[in-house]
Design a protein around this nucleic acid. Structure first.
Lengths: 155, 155
DNA sequence: GTATCAAGTCAATATAGTTGACATGAGGGG
DNA sequence: CCCCTCATGTCAACTATATTGACTTGATAC
């Protein structure tokens, strides 16, 4: 587990631009860091990290999700899921129970404590996004979403 | 070193939205993956990965940078830099020489082969950005940049 | 000559992931 | 009842990326 880290500021470096899109590449990098910095810091103070948050985030939005479906969404192996998932269960941030009829699969759910941590961590990220969107206005926010969708769906 | 990986498609999961900014959080995540997917795949085929690309990217834009300055910009420890940097030197993608007067520091430079790989990897990322910007138009691209700057400078 | 700076190296540790192999427990079909 | 499959769980070995701490080497600077 990470110690109470201090989230190195890491100011954006000013590099010469060899291409006109270099600024965009760097903004994607620093944007991701900027959005997740405070959330990661909060999570570290709880003895958790990004993979734990991803699990909590998905389960919050898919109550009673089975483990297999969670693996699918997260895109990792069950062995990789195992450790962070067990920690969350031990800490009672998640519960798992077998459903009455489909007794083969386990259904995951957040506890109240799990909901609190998921919400606080995601709030840190949403706060950053909200501040940026407020500055950009409604049309700027919509344009940002449209560009990000085009990038995300590039596959 | 990674094997010739196949870049798991990992289609965007459709999760219920608990907050109106959840879509933005997910777009940031999938946007980052979308931009870097092909570049990472290309790098893996060269036996390289993201840290190597970051080194090449910075040195390309700061020829004759010293190792200490590179550490600063990348925000990692010198021990963490050591392995990928030595690999790049062994592969002759980078050269290091001591300068005549400041004989204490080593100056890093890309070789022609290093330039080629840096350019190809970055081209994959720029290609994705260009396609998204083309769809969004000049004003959409400008809005995206403005929002990302606000997020990146959140610290 | 001693202190300092830049770089290099060694060891131990943490985190985050992989593949492979195998166990367990439930349900279904013959 | 036996056997197969599915969902889950677990063990082991491995890779990659990072960390901190301790120490060395070589080049200045005073």
């Amino acid at each position: 587990m990470p110690k109470t880290s201090q989230a190195a500021g890491l100011h954006r470096a000013s590099l010469d631009k060899l291409h006109d899109l270099d600024a965009a590449l760097e903004l994607m990098y620093y944007g991701w860091r900027g959005m997740t910095l405070e959330a990661d810091d909060y999570l570290a103070r709880q003895g958790l990290s990004r993979p734990h948050h991803r699990i909590l985030y998905v389960v919050a939005r898919r109550p009673d999700i089975a483990i297999g479906a969670l693996i699918e969404i997260l895109g990792i192996s069950k062995q990789a899921l195992n450790r962070p998932l067990n920690l969350l269960l031990e800490r009672k941030l998640l519960t798992s129970k077998r459903s009455p009829e489909q007794h083969r699969s386990k259904l995951l759910r957040l506890t109240v404590a799990g909901q609190r941590i998921e919400q606080k961590a995601s709030d840190h990220e949403r706060k950053v996004m909200r501040a940026a969107f407020d500055r950009a206005g409604v049309s700027g926010a919509a344009a940002w979403m449209a560009v990000m969708e085009a990038i995300a769906d590039n596959n």
